[in-house]
Simulated assay, not measured.
Amino acid sequence: MASSTLWWSLLLLVVVCNGGGAFGKRILADDQQPGFDQNYVITWGGNHVSFLDQGREIQLSMDNSSGAGFSSKLVYGSGLFHLKIKLPNKDSAGVVTAFYLSSNSNNHDELDFEFLGNVEGMPISLQTNIFTNGQGNREQRIVLWFDPTADFHDYKILWNPYHVVFYVDEIPIRVFNNLTSNGVEYPSQAMNIIVSLWNGESWATNGGRTKINWADAPFTAQFQGFDVDGCAQGGSGAGSCASPGLWWNAGEYKELTPSQAAAYERVKNDYLTYDYCRDKARFPVLPPECSIKNT
């Protein structure tokens, strides 16, 4: 683990020095962060929410009576969306911490980070999923190269006309390219930013076989970084949010940098534990994007 951590530290330095850290310039320093109330609102489980550091940190808790969640006040048609998250520790089997974008429609679009808790000492899985026009089933799972319960890490979703990229700190862990020219639907509906801590014991750990140990409740997750770099709109489509004048739509964010691409290959080779595009038992006929270069 020590050598792996050193490798990632050196790679992260290379990514930042070669332009992969440009997002870091866009995201405000901790002392410049807006308070929670500027961009977000509690949506459920209000008595399981704590406001810390004058609203610059939020803690959600879950016990056997309720979890909690919050959402952005506005909907967005493109942007770079991020939160710093510290996950529940100890025995968190069955506990799901979610950070995602979702449209408010029946045939919805959705971009998911889902952290699947585990028994103490076992790795927490980070699952990503992508819905377009109500169709999901595009799960990928990785294990992280650090303990996500020990400290805050920055989780980001870049959504622009070219691709959706999921990042852990500055490292890309998943890319979903815009393949509409090949007949593959791409997220196009305006979406809210949504965060929740909830009971997923029916499926989240060992396929639902490992249940929540309520003796360890309450389970808590902390969140920081409530600034939003996104194209806010009142309509239902992306529209002008595809404008090249928005910094996250600029040419430099059309594809990964060479150092980011190298880091992404390392993630796929060493940390990817499930990919729907490799699950032929589940998909005898693989989804069309699986047969197209979609790095």
Rank of each mutant, 00 (worst) to 15 (best):
N213V: 15
K156W: 04
D37M: 04
I212D: 03
K90S: 08
T295W: 07
T273C: 13
K25F: 09
L197Y: 08
A215Y: 04
G207S: 07
Y100R: 07
T149I: 15
V16I: 15
N160V: 12
V168A: 08
E201W: 03
A150I: 11
Y100W: 08
I130P: 03
V143W: 05
V175L: 13
S4W: 10
V285D: 10
D216Y: 12
M122E: 04
F226R: 00
D53W: 06
A98R: 05
W159D: 04
H163P: 06
F219M: 07
L256T: 15
A2N: 08
G79H: 05
N178G: 07
G24C: 09
G77D: 13
S188W: 06
D270G: 09
A261R: 01
L111Y: 01
L12V: 15
E57P: 12
D151V: 15
L60E: 09
F70T: 14
S9A: 12
Q135H: 03
A22T: 14
N107W: 09
R209E: 13
Y40C: 04
C17M: 06
A204G: 09
V285L: 08
Q32R: 02
Y274S: 02
F99G: 09
T295M: 07
P187R: 00
R278W: 01
F223M: 11
R266S: 07
G245C: 07
G20Y: 11
Y155P: 04
D147H: 00
G183P: 11
W198R: 00
R266L: 12
L28G: 03
S196K: 03
W214M: 04
L272S: 09
D31K: 02
E255M: 10
L272C: 10
S259I: 15
A29C: 08
E110N: 05
T257F: 14
K156R: 01
V143S: 09
F36H: 04
D37Y: 13
D112R: 05
C231T: 07
G230T: 11
E185T: 15
P34E: 08
W7S: 06
T205I: 13
L158A: 06
G207R: 01
L83K: 00
F219W: 10
R282P: 15
E252C: 03
Q127Y: 02
F131C: 08
V15C: 08
A281V: 15
P288Q: 10
S50M: 03
H82S: 12
E110W: 08
H163F: 06
D37C: 06
K73L: 11
W198T: 02
W7E: 09
G24Y: 04
T257C: 13
Q59T: 06
F219K: 02
